[in-house]
């Protein structure tokens, strides 16, 4: 669905569902995922339908993902960081972190 005009110059390595992804420093998680060909970022909690980034400016909340164990983060306003582990947010499992 998307391609990069040029290869990332300052590379950042991260994963999505365990798959290695190379991102460009300074870009958002959503941009990195779309550039890597990932188009389904979450399932809605109501019907379970897949969703992807829609507005890219923090308004629509359709790009919610789990990053390093923290759920409900907006991929389009979260900058990529080296070693980041991103997971798709599936309806019922995105919830509570275990400290209780």
């Amino acid at each position: 669905m998307f391609r990069r005009l040029s290869d990332p110059e300052k590379k950042v390595r991260m994963t999505f569902e365990g798959q290695d992804i190379t991102a460009q420093e300074g870009e958002s998680v959503a941009a990195a995922l779309l550039a890597a060909g990932i188009t389904h970022l979450r399932q809605t909690p109501v019907s379970g339908h897949p969703r992807a980034p829609y507005c890219m400016m923090g308004a629509c909340f359709d790009c919610l993902v789990n990053i390093d164990g923290v759920s409900n983060l907006q991929a389009c306003v979260t900058p990529v960081r080296e070693g980041m582990s991103v997971h798709s947010q599936v309806a019922e499992k995105d919830l509570l972190h275990e400290d209780g």
Partner: peptide, 24 residues
Amino acid sequence: TRPGVMTAGGVQILLKSSGVVPDG
């Protein structure tokens, strides 16, 4: 709401901030 639908602003932000453009 389907994946594969985006706003023009969203696509433009991909271009501006990442040099990522639509394909296909």
